[in-house]
Amino acid sequence: MAAPTATTVVLENQSGDTAILVSSTYEGAPSVIKSGEQPVVFDQNTELNTYGSVMYAIGKIATWIVVWTANNQVATWILPAGTSAVWTDIWNKIQPDNANDSYTTSYGWMYESDAHIKSNGDAQDLTAGISVIPPN
């Protein structure tokens, strides 16, 4: 059996609204990520889980999901608020190293998310962020 891989997770919120934790597979995920502040950092020990996930409500506008695995695969998804997450759809989006997604509201605001994961010896680093682009 392979040694567990520690994952350092860095989440950045530039959405213009506070991100509130809805669910996570790991208890170290921060419950609040304020927009425009320094990224939040936490570690995941994959000895218990070979994957991790976080789901955040972005105000009352959107839901932001990030999923990652111990073997450097990642997915991100932005859903309209109130939409149920279909986890098989999210797992079908998982891919090596990088992922991105976007969602445009009915008011023309575009939310974008990027996620990047890479090995760092016996550990890995995951960086994910959400941002917003106002309508023209």
Results as ranks from 00 to 15, higher is better:
Tyr103Cys: 03
Leu79Met: 03
Ala81Cys: 12
Asn120Gln: 15
Ala62Pro: 05
Ala81Arg: 15
Lys118Ile: 11
Asn49Tyr: 01
Asp114Phe: 12
His116Gln: 08
Thr83Pro: 04
Leu79Ser: 02
Asp122His: 12
Ser106Ala: 13
Val32Cys: 04
Pro39Phe: 05
Asn100Lys: 15
Trp77Met: 15
Met110Leu: 12
Ala123Met: 11
Pro80Ser: 14
Trp87Lys: 08
Ala85Ile: 11
Ile58Thr: 08
Ser84Gly: 12
Trp87Arg: 13
Thr105Tyr: 01
Asn72Met: 10
Ala81Ile: 13
Asp43Lys: 01
Ala99Asp: 06
Trp68Gln: 02
Asp97Lys: 13
Thr63Asp: 08
Met55Pro: 01
Asn71Arg: 12
Asn72Asp: 13
Asn92Lys: 12
Ala99Tyr: 05
Tyr51Trp: 06
Asp89Thr: 15
Asn120Ala: 09
Asn49Arg: 00
Gly108Ala: 04
Glu112Leu: 08
Asp43Gly: 04
Ser84Phe: 14
Gln44Lys: 02
Asp43Tyr: 00
Leu79Asn: 01
Ile33Pro: 12
Val66Asp: 04
Gln73Ala: 09
Gly108Trp: 00
Trp68Pro: 02
Ile33Thr: 10
Asn71Ser: 15
Ser119Asp: 11
Phe42Cys: 03
Pro30Ile: 08
Ala99Cys: 10
Thr88Ile: 14
Tyr107Trp: 15
Glu112Gly: 05
Ala123Tyr: 07
Val74Gly: 00
Thr63Tyr: 09
Gln95Tyr: 10
Ser113Glu: 12
Glu47Lys: 00
Tyr111Asn: 02
Ala62Arg: 08
Ala99His: 07
Lys118Arg: 11
Thr69Gln: 04
Pro80Tyr: 08
Trp109Thr: 13
